[in-house]
Design a binder for these strands. Structure first.
Lengths: 152, 152
DNA sequence: CACACATATTTGCCTTGACAAATATATTTT
DNA sequence: AAAATATATTTGTCAAGGCAAATATGTGTG
């Protein structure tokens, strides 16, 4: 199976590569968990549902920004998720350009199932870190993100 | 204006999302640095050159695995980089199926320029972390990666 | 009001990368 | 050695996402 000579030599990976590797594995694990429940959802779609479930209805642009997705790509994801009945595009009351994306009851129910997957994967991923270390990891990542976004 | 309620509330991002955000920013920053030098290279291509520069000639499959890229995608990247004169596909001496990908002198020269970019971006990204914290961040990420790859 | 400009969404086009099939060559089994 | 199997590379096909243009609507300025 895995005779990859690099499997244990990632010690000198640069941060950019290492982040990519970890993220790829998390996405893989999440999609595997979702598939194991007989559901068909990509990680991106999972994120969209999660946002809507946690933050409530919002515009497509706002939603796109919040999952760091291109606006055009968002339109197509919404097409899919809407056609499968998980969300609705309602007209925005004040702004006729904008939409108000909201979960349907089905979308809500779906999220109930997904929230387990999410927690299970994150727990497994961080199982070798204690509570303090988890906090630190999160904290460091946020500081790195902030540093990158405010380069001056 | 920016009335995005998420701009400063990434504190509750899940690990998967946060990793994605950080990685995206690093890739963006790297590509910006490269473009600022008048060079045209994507992050993936940068990684390929880096591997070859650091580890020397190797097969396409090995190279693909080492940057976590699909074999088919690797073929096409090699096409591009070879046609631009940065690397060569030599026949493997013992195995006639395999290739021996090696940097040309031009590829080597290119890497000399890129190594700056790499260091500058990583330094900027981690500028708010001290040496110990950087080590910890790296260590945590590797432990998470390991946990994900050995899920049992 | 008329105009310029900004924003929300959609659509078209293009590149990237995943997956699977094809091809060529090695390795192992019988 | 022939057959089965494994590996390296290439190619075809497809979905995802970035970018730019198109459209519709909102906002500000003279």
């Amino acid at each position: 199976m895995n005779n990859d000579p690099l499997a244990h030599s990632s010690s000198r990976e640069s941060l950019g590569v290492l982040l990519g590797l970890v993220r790829t594995e998390i996405v893989r694990a999440m999609e595997a968990e979702i598939a194991a429940k007989g559901l068909e959802l990509r990680f991106t779609q999972f994120l969209i549902l999660k946002r809507l479930a946690k933050l409530g209805p919002m515009g497509a642009t706002e939603l796109a920004r919040s999952v760091e997705l291109d606006g055009g790509a968002m339109t197509r994801q919404l097409d899919q998720l809407e056609s499968r009945g998980y969300l609705r595009r309602c007209p925005h009351e004040q702004d006729r350009r904008a939409l108000r994306i909201e979960l349907t009851a089905e979308g809500d129910a779906l999220w109930q199932q997904l929230t387990n997957c999410n927690e299970r994967v994150l727990k497994a991923a961080q199982r070798s870190l204690n509570a303090t270390e988890r906090k630190h990891l999160h904290d460091y990542l946020e500081r790195v993100l902030h540093a990158l976004r405010n380069k001056n």
